[in-house]
Amino acid sequence: MAIEIGSNIMARRNNAVLDFLGSAGLSYRKPAIIAWWSAAFPGFGHMLLDMHIKGNVLFLFEIIINFNSKLNLAMVYTFMGDFKRSALTLNTQWTLIYIPFYFYCIWDSYITTAKLNRINALTKDKPVTMKVLDLRTYETCFIDKRLPWLASVWSFLLPGLGQVYTRRLFTALSLLSWSVTIYVNSHQLQYIQLIVNHEATMAEAIKVLNPEWLLFMPSLIFGAAYDAYAKTVESNRLFEKELLSYLKFEWSIAKSDLIIKEKRGSDL
């Protein structure tokens, strides 16, 4: 498909791509919002930018460092007002590793978003030419219109499902495996089960909960729900852009015999 306008720039910077792992496209993103998700869960910001390898490495490191420093446990004690116990809980060595790691993630995702926005400003008015279906024997991916709220709801139920729905295979696989890890280790489902079946009182059931793992959950669930929502909106927009580019070049009035102005004069 040869497109005359700006073909040189197109060759240097493509603005959308699709393969069997999913689709990616450039679009304007607020740096502060991406930085926020890096702060909530290092790695999430990069996943939102479709930087899946970087994002997953950071995600893994976040869990290892956070778990060993007992940061979440210390947070629980802090919010409970027990500052002494909080200080005693923290592992100093791991906490000192955590600090530069944490702020680097936030800074890096912020600066990357700002730079990608500038590239987006260069490419956003170019027509979108991309593969719309990648059919393989082991996986099939196509671009389509999907419902953002539905993706969000699936990720609320189990982080990762909304990503399967919007076909972000990398994010889906990593979020699903982390969800299982965090759900099982936090014992929150066991806690709910004990209370619902009246096998324990609320005060007793608390003992099965693991606060260190439990505190990963809000960031994981809301991060996943946001990712599912925002990325479905983005891929819907990409679908529209691609369709409009196609119609503009293949089915425009210039390609047909129809002439709006002169037809009437000659026919009458």
Binding site: K30, I33, W36, A40, M75, V76, T78, F79, M80, Q188, Y191, I192, I195, M202, A203, A205, I206, L209, P211, L214, L215, M217, P218, S219, I221, F222, G223, A225, Y226, Y229
Partner: peptide, 27 residues
Amino acid sequence: ADLGFVFATIFGVVGASIGFKMELGPI
């Protein structure tokens, strides 16, 4: 939905933490 998700995460973390010593529990 930007700010809604952001606030939900912050409030979820703080709420669950405080919930450990409240009657209805962290969940």
